[in-house]
Structure formats: structure tokens, C-alpha cells
């Protein structure tokens, strides 16, 4: 087990170094001169030249990379060209809003997706299965940005049930502002007993949350179905059936436990996917999160900010994969044995 974890950790570190090199190279192949961007549009040539020296762009590429990594590890992720603020601090101020939205969406998705997938697998081939398959494939095929707008049309304009955009309504944020504890409005408002703000926050998160859930819901349902089908075709399930065990027991005890691995993997992957999906959703719902920050950075070719977001998401992705692999090794002895 220990050797497996060490091997897996080493691999993750290699990949993270690769990710940092790739991101670094991407920002150095930028068509416009970063130094010129830094000083702004009406700068004199000598100002650009001094900015180039200040940013270390006059040094060879490997020196630039070394400095970049050194600063990166010291928590200095550069300064945003647009706001001239440290990128890392900005990222952390935008992150909680995105995380709250993602967690909210994932809870909806998995609470519905896993049961849907199980029903679909058990009723393989009949109408319920076809319906749930259509539903889950549709969830994966929906363009999120479009779904977001359609939900706004239906629930804001026509039914007047939910607000159009934002995280909190103006009145609440003035009359009973939320004290920042974790940055998660739903949690912060609850722990400070600010129920008016809790209501408003909940009211605002529903539409973006549903939009975000569509993709993981479809994916988790499809994945649960595929895995359950595979397992239900295994010999030990046939044996269990032949021994006359009750179907519920077969499903809950024998099949579902073995299906948990792939579902867990999909959970971690969809989390990372959702992190990117929020780029689209947050721009439609004006949700002040990481995606909102990223779209602004992209529009203004603010490359330190683009790089920061890219690295943050990619590292999260690598870390999640690492956690999943190690958890799976704990759950499934076959994985760790194959590595020893």
C-alpha cells in the first residue's frame, strides 16, 4: 500500500511540474508583448523596455521559468495586468462563491443521478430505462450557457419565481449584510443567524445550481447505469441470484458496493468539470466567482490572471485524481496488489 501511494504521489508531482511548464510556455507564446501590456497602450518605448527588465522578460526562458516557479512556491503568482492586484489574493477572494455553487449543484446532481442510474440498469431495456437514458444523455448534451438563459426566461421572466442574477439582492446586502466567516453565503448567514440573508442567498443559488447540476446529473446517471450493468453481468451476481438471494440485497450489498469506485471517480472528475462549467454559468448569472474573474481576464488578455486560474483548476484536478486513486486503492485490494 505504502509503495503504491509513494508511486502515485511521485506521478502527481511529475504531472504538476508538466502542468506548470505547459502553462508557462502558453503565456510566453502570447502574440502580444507582455511588457507592452503591462505598461498600457500609450507607453513610451523606454517604459516598455524597463517593464521588460522589471518582469524579467529579458532573461533566457529557463531562468524565467526558474524564477516563476520560485515565486509561485512562495505564494507570489504575479500581479493582474487589469487590476494590478496580486493574482493569488484575487483568486482566493473569488473562489468561495464558485465552490459554494459547485457543491450545491453536485449535491442536486448526485442525489438524483445515482438512483436514476440504478433504476435504469435494473430495468434495463424497458421504458423506464429508455426514458432515463434519454434524460441522462440530454443532460450531457445541453449547452450550459443556453440552459442558463432558458431558465432565466422561464423562472424569472415568465413565472417570476427566482431572481435573474447575482448572489444576494441589493436590499439584503444593505440591510443585513453577511459577515464573512467561510465565504460561503449559505453557511455564513446560518452560523451568524442572519436568516433574511440565508433566504436571499438560497433564492439566488437555485437557478445557477440547477444549471450546473444538469451535466453531472446526466454523467453520474450514465456512469452508474454502465457500471451497474457491467456488474449485474458478472458471475458472482448470477451465483447470488442462483442461491436465491433477494434482489434488493443483491443490488444493495453486492452490486452497489462494487459500483462505488467508478462513481467516485466520476464525482471527482465532474467536480473539476464543474469548476470549468462555472466559467459559462457565472458569466450568464453574474455570479461573482472564479469563472466571472476568468472571463474578465480572458476578455482583457490578462495573462497572469489566466495563468493563475488555469494553474489553480489544473492543480485541483490533479489533486482530486490523486485522492480518488488512493481512496480506490483502500477500497479495492486488486489495485494496490497490481502495483506491488
Amino acid at each position: 500500500m505504502a509503495s503504491y501511494i509513494v508511486r502515485r504521489l511521485a506521478l502527481a508531482i511529475v504531472v504538476m511540474i508538466g502542468v506548470s511548464i505547459l502553462t508557462f510556455l502558453l503565456t510566453r507564446t502570447i502574440p502580444s508583448d507582455p511588457a507592452a501590456r503591462w505598461v498600457g497602450p500609450h507607453a513610451r518605448p523606454e517604459q516598455v523596455a524597463s517593464a521588460r527588465i522589471k518582469l524579467g522578460l529579458d532573461k533566457p526562458l529557463y531562468v524565467q521559468y526558474y524564477r516563476y516557479i520560485r515565486d509561485f512556491l512562495h505564494g507570489d503568482w504575479g500581479h493582474s495586468i487589469r487590476t494590478h492586484q496580486p493574482v493569488l489574493r484575487e483568486l482566493f477572494s473569488y473562489l468561495p462563491a464558485s465552490l459554494e455553487l459547485i457543491l450545491f449543484g453536485m449535491v442536486i446532481a448526485f442525489a438524483l443521478g445515482i438512483p436514476l442510474g440504478i433504476i435504469s440498469a435494473v430495468k434495463n431495456g424497458n421504458t423506464i430505462d429508455h426514458l432515463s437514458r434519454v434524460f441522462s444523455i440530454a443532460g450531457v448534451a445541453l449547452p450550459t450557457f443556453w440552459l442558463a438563459m432558458i431558465l432565466q426566461l422561464v423562472f424569472f421572466k415568465e413565472l417570476k419565481l427566482f431572481p435573474l442574477a447575482g448572489r444576494l439582492d441589493m436590499m439584503t446586502s444593505v440591510i443585513s449584510p453577511i459577515e464573512c466567516v467561510t465565504g460561503f453565503y449559505l453557511i455564513d448567514s446560518l452560523v451568524t443567524c442572519n436568516f433574511a440573508a440565508f433566504g436571499s442567498a438560497l433564492y439566488h443559488i437555485v437557478l445557477p445550481g440547477i444549471t450546473l447540476a444538469a451535466f453531472p446529473l446526466g454523467l453520474s446517471a450514465r456512469m452508474t447505469r454502465a457500471t451497474m450493468l457491467e456488474i449485474l453481468g458478472e458471475d458472482y451476481i448470477r451465483t447470488a441470484r442462483a442461491c436465491g438471494l433477494r434482489e434488493v440485497k443483491i443490488l444493495a450489498v453486492y452490486a452497489l458496493r462494487n459500483a462505488i469506485g467508478p462513481v467516485l471517480t466520476v464525482g471527482a472528475l465532474t467536480f473539476a468539470y464543474s469548476l470549468v462549467e462555472t466559467f459559462l454559468i457565472e458569466s450568464v448569472f453574474a455570479w461573482p466567482g472564479l469563472g466571472y474573474y476568468a472571463s474578465n481576464a480572458i476578455m482583457t488578455v490578462d495573462y497572469p490572471a489566466i495563468m493563475g486560474v488555469t494553474l489553480l483548476v489544473a492543480f485541483t484536478y490533479v489533486l482530486l485524481n490523486l485522492i480518488v486513486d488512493i481512496t480506490l486503492a483502500f477500497l479495492d485490494p486488486r489495485i494496490r496488489i497490481s502495483y506491488t
Partner: peptide, 24 residues
């Protein structure tokens, strides 16, 4: 395979976004 792993460790939409933002 390590290079492949590096590319796979980006969600594809994110990588595509970063690349097209930078290429123009």
C-alpha cells in the same frame, strides 16, 4: 505518457479556453 498525463490533467474546455485566449 507523462506528457499525455500533463495534458489530460487539464479539463479540456479549460485548456482550449486558455489556448484560444492566447492564440487570439
Amino acid at each position: 505518457m507523462r506528457v499525455t498525463d500533463t495534458f489530460l490533467s487539464f479539463p479540456s474546455l479549460l485548456l482550449a479556453m486558455a489556448i484560444s485566449a492566447i492564440l487570439g
